[in-house]
Each structure stands twice: as structure tokens, then as C-alpha cells.
Write a protein that binds this DNA or RNA. Structure first.
Lengths: 345, 345
DNA sequence: TGCATTTGCGTTTACGTTAACGCATAGTAT
DNA sequence: ATACTATGCGTTAACGTAAACGCAAATGCA
């Protein structure tokens, strides 16, 4: 069913049908009705190829992420997924335009966001880790299509949010630590950077898992690697709690913490569990410094968000608004390392 | 960079450029060279929209899967992924044409395969679970683009194989069973239908995990639900092995086996681990009849294979030839049930 | 009444690619 | 010599959509 077939059936020209379809006015009310009824009856779907050929536009998706190297590779994995999607979609005239912001600096998200929106992007992919600034930014551009990764932003209407439940992740970390360390003891939940929503929720879930298990005592601690004495802090904790038996790091810094634990000679008594299968963490797992990783599939998040924006913008599809990423459990037995595929032992 | 720009630069017509691009002959050798050098220099990429508009073809992907209801939903999940991809790609003129075959009947794959290829599909998605017949089928159509799901097929050149390492899956099942049942005892690996490659490899991996763990004795058994006495067989096994402490079912029939175990009143002594997050298995996990599931993401496999065939056929991209699906570990704490998304406790 | 604007509609061009067609010129066979 | 065919190239008509343009007729305002 094409526009000209509709035109023939309605005894009007294709120009009239086009005006009806795009609500460009200058059509008599009863003509509109006639055309609309034919469209509804026959279920017209515009031809995507013809449509995009005619418009012949580059569809540019702005990408606004925290500094890729501000943490240890989590955001970089997300960026890899974004790049993969962009590469696949390049023959469909989709390009990305990326800017980073410093989540520790007030106003950085907002400023960088404004910079990228000045360039008139067609859609925006955003990690709303500074909620207030993200809201301000989006409020200034009410017609913009945007998608979230990493975490949701309440009171906004995104095309799509690709997220994971951090409370559940913390709870699952508790279960895994319980399985890996059935003997009880003192457990420590570690945060490394300034409290973020996902991090604190994970701690909450983790603590709640052990709330009804008296064989375990749980603590909550912040370790800062920049300009302080993380090794000393951790050493003091071990001396105060000789029955330490497990550590849960709520983010991708687990390999750093594991390094400290090994330096203190405490690995044998400590089960290590953390987040995100970044290269350093995978390596630490191979070296038996880390026992379990949970993953929020950051590559998948970025990849999916780009595709959803493309589907909305170029295919005019209305995708699910919330895509909830399963929590992956990674043990040495199902760790997949770059380049190794399907090796039969 | 368009064809007419190339034509202008080369001082020829667009017809000539087109003949060079498509190697349709009737162009003087030095003209070919001139055009080619300009193309290489400027990096011409054909416009996908214009190309497909002109060709205005339906791209039909044939799908050849085992009877969707022959097992308990594994193939159905794969089909769901295929349908999802097909729905997303429908504005790009991609359609699927599916036929099922009976993997237990000799000649069924081949016959159904021939039926579907008679209809001149543009590409084929195939689960090569009857290797010899799949090879014969593909050998008869040397120019066809095809992709595999579920398992690979040696000595063929598919566009893409979306697979998982079954040996590793069995090994991981061993590790999880070990974690969930640290006390040793007798373990049973169960196959339910006629031995398939994936099933037997999983058993092999499972047994190898416990090979060096004398606290566990492992057995290997076939249970057939059709027309026999599975309950009786399992009962006999329990009586002969009172220290039974775990069962690994290598496929999606874990919920059926779990049902028998519950009937025999043996659940409390038996850790149950199986494959594939089909609805019945998820339900059994919610009811605490199943303790752990591994997943090969069948929806993802089907979804991805369709997309790769589309990318090859319509975008002319050359994707990775092997996509190795990670082995997902599903516990009650990270089980995702249809409809429930991101519920904060 | 006269002129300008608005309304309603048809016509046309363009997007980039493909492939059929046409038309010379050159070479080959009868 | 005539009638072929082969070669090398340009021209053109689609594919379906979008939107500018044009042209009447109807309406507004003096």
C-alpha cells in the first residue's frame, strides 16, 4: 500500500494524501475524512526506504556520558556498545556525537549537555547520574527524544530507559557471597567514589540479604584511592575484625580493592565479589583475586539505547519504555575473555 | 559521495559507474580503472535507502526449527526472539517464513528444508540439530546465506553461528551444584530425549567438574517421559543411593524431573539444577522446586541470527561469524519474570 | 466592483540507485 | 558488400515519499 494507491482509491492526488498524512492543512474536511478512512481500512505503513531517501538526513544521536576514564572502565564498556551500534547503523545514516562530563564537578553535565544540544542533534543518549542537572537540561528541550542508560530519571518521559535494579543486585551479591562463604564471619560492603544512587542501593540490598543471618556481621565502608591511605584503612579494619570473610565492592573498583587485600595477605580468608566485567576485573578473576562478578551489561545498555533511539527516530517505532537488564553472575567457570570463543576443552 | 559525483569526477555517466560497481561488463579497461581509483580514493558507500528502494524487494528469511512444542519451550523461546527481530525489521521489508521439522524423524529436516528453499527465500536460519541432513540441504544450495543457532555445523561457512559452549555449561553446572550442595553425596546428570550433541557435552562437562572431588559420586541417566515409568526409575535410583544430594538436568525438562522428585518426597535432600528459563522452569524456581537454572539465551540467539542475516543481505555488512553466548546463571534472586520490571522492594 | 488573500487541490522535482534501453562504432561471418 | 554481433558508453524510467510550486476558485476587505 503506497501513497499513490491511496490517492487512486480516494480520487485525489498524492499531494493531497501527503498533506493529510502530515497534517499540513489546506485540505477540505470531507477529503481528509475520505483519505483517513481508506488509510485505516488498508493499514498504510510508509516505506522506510523511500521516506529516508527523500529526507536524506544524517540522523545524529548525541551521547552524554561521564568521563570514560573517571572510573575503571565501566563507562568505557558502555561506550563500546554505543560504538558497535553506531557502526552497524552507519549505512542507515546514523551517527553519534559524544561529549563527556565530569560527574564530580557541579554544572558539568548541564554545560556539556547544552554544548551538545546546540549542535542540533536528533536524539540524546544520557546517563542521568546527576539527576537535577539532567532534569534541567531536558526541561529546556521539550521536543527532544532521549534515552537513559545506567539509571532512570523520575518525572521524565524518555523514549527508553535501559537500567538494572541495583537493590536486587546487592541482594544477589549477598546470596553469592553466602554461597561462596558459608561459614559466617564479618562482611564488608565497599563504596569507592562519592555516593551514587546505584551504589547506595546495592549496599542496601546487600545488607538486607544478611539482615536475618546472625552468623554474619556486615559493615559498610568507603575507600578512596585518590590521595588517601586506603591500604592503611583496610588494614585497620582487618585488625579490628579478625573474622573478616568477605568483601563486596559495589562497583568496578573491585580489582583495586582485591589488590589491597592481596597486599595485606588476607585473600585466603576473604571472598571477593564485585561489579562489572571490565578487563582489569576479568584479569583479577583469572588470577583468583576476585571470586565473583556481577554485571549490568554496560555494552548491552549502550548498544540497546542507541538502537531504540534509532527505531524511534527513523523507523517511527514505539519501543518498550523500560528495558530491565538481567543481573549476570560471572564466576571463573563462565568468564568470557576477549578473543576466546567456544573453546572445547 | 554518490554515484553521480563519482561519474562527474571520472567524466563518465552514472550508467558506466554502475556497470563498474556491479561488474556488469561492457566498460573499457582504463575506464574501469579510472572509476575504481576514484571510488577507492573517496571511499564510496552505496546509500542503503536508495538501494533498497530501487530494488523494492521483500527480504524473506526462511526459518527451520525443530517442532516448537516437541520439548518444553526452548525452541519456542528461540522463536519468540526471531519474531521480535522480524517485527522490528518489518519496516525494512524483512519477513520470515518458518517451517518446523521433527528431529526424531529421519529425513524430516531435509524434507522441510527443501520445502522452504523451494519458495526462494533470501536467507536461511537453521538449527542444525540433525547434522548430516543439514549438510546435505546446504550442499544443494551453494549460494544461499545461512546462519546457525543452538549449535554449530562443522565444514560449512555460515554467515554466522550463534552458539554456546555446552561442555563449559555442564562444567559450570557442576560448580553451581557444588556451591549449592557443599556436603558431597551422589549426583545425577539426567538426559531426557535422544542424545543430542549439546546434551551429551553438558554431561561430559558436568562429570569432569566432579572428577577430582571424591566427596561426590556422579551418575548419568536417561529419563523418558513418553510411555514409560520415569517415576519408578527415579524411585529405584533414590533407593539404591540414599545419599542422593543433587540432580542436573541437561535441558529444559528440569521442571518435569523436579515434579517427580517432589512426588517422591525427595526435594529436601536434592539440589535441582537445570537448563533454560522457560516459563515452567521459572515457575518451578519460584515454587522452590528448582534451585538454579543455566540459560543459553535462546531468544537472544534467534534474535541475533535474524539480525545478522539481515545485515548481510540488506546492509551488505560482514558480521562476526561466531557469536558465543555467555552462560547465564539464574538463581531465585535474579530471576526475571515476564511483566515484572525493576520493582524496588 | 476591484484587488488581495486564502483555500483546496494537482503537478512536479528531487532523493540515489538500478537496470533496461538506445546508439554509435568496430569487428566478424556469410 | 551486407548483415550480423560485440563493445563502450550515455540516457532514461522507475522505486515511494516529501515538499515546493502553481493554479484555479472562493473569500475577505476596501
Amino acid at each position: 500500500m503506497t501513497i499513490s494507491e491511496i490517492a487512486k482509491l480516494a480520487n485525489v492526488s498524492i499531494g493531497t494524501v501527503d498533506r493529510v498524512l502530515h497534517k499540513r492543512g489546506r485540505v477540505a474536511p470531507n477529503t481528509v475524512e475520505k483519505v483517513m478512512s481508506i488509510i485505516e481500512e488498508h493499514g498504510y505503513q510508509p516505506n522506510t526506504y523511500a521516506r529516508n531517501l527523500k529526507l536524506s538526513r544524517q540522523f545524529t544521536i548525541g551521547v552524554l556520558l561521564p568521563l570514560l576514564h573517571s572510573e575503571y572502565g565501566y563507562w568505557n564498556l558502555m561506550y563500546e556498545g554505543i560504538l558497535k551500534a553506531a557502526k552497524e547503523l552507519s549505512p542507515l545514516a546514523v551517527t553519534i556525537d559524544m561529549l563527556e562530563f565530569d560527574r564530580t564537578k557541579e554544572g558539568s553535565l548541564l554545560a556539556q549537555g547544552r554544548r551538545i544540544l546546540e549542535k542540533s542533534v536528533d536524539a540524546l543518549l544520557l546517563a542521568p547520574v546527576v539527576p537535577a542537572e539532567a532534569k534541567t537540561l531536558l526541561a529546556d528541550h521539550p521536543t527532544l527524544d532521549y534515552a537513559f542508560v545506567d539509571s532512570p530519571l523520575p518525572d521524565t518521559i524518555p523514549v527508553c530507559s535501559v537500567i538494572q535494579n541495583p537493590y536486587q543486585g546487592g541482594y544477589l551479591a549477598g546470596r553469592m557471597l553466602h554461597l561462596l562463604q558459608p561459614n559466617g564471619g564479618t562482611l564488608l560492603a565497599v563504596q569507592t567514589h562519592r555516593a551514587a544512587y546505584n551504589s547506595s542501593e546495592r549496599v542496601r540490598g546487600f545488607l538486607s540479604y544478611f539482615a536475618d543471618k546472625p552468623a554474619y556481621k556486615t559493615y559498610d565502608m568507603e575507600i578512596h584511592f585518590a590521595g588517601q591511605n586506603p591500604l592503611g584503612d583496610l588494614d585497620v579494619f582487618y585488625r579490628n575484625h579478625p573474622d573478616m570473610s568477605g568483601i563486596f565492592v559495589v562497583n568496578d573498583a573491585i580489582h583495586r580493592v582485591a589488590g589491597l587485600v592481596v597486599q595485606l595477605g588476607r585473600k585466603s580468608q576473604t571472598v571477593m565479589i564485585g561489579y562489572d566485567a571490565i578487563a582489569q576485573n576479568c584479569k583479577a578473576m583469572k588470577n583468583k583475586q576476585v571470586d565473583c562478578l556481577l554485571s549490568q551489561r554496560p555494552e548491552f545498555q549502550g548498544y540497546t539505547a542507541i538502537y531504540q533511539l534509532y527505531r524511534k527516530g527513523l523507523l517511527n517505532q514505539l519501543p518498550e519504555t523500560t528495558i530491565c537488564v538481567p543481573i549476570d553472575i560471572i564466576l571463573p567457570e563462565n568468564l568470557m575473555v576477549e578473543g576466546e570463543t567456544y573453546l572445547k576443552p
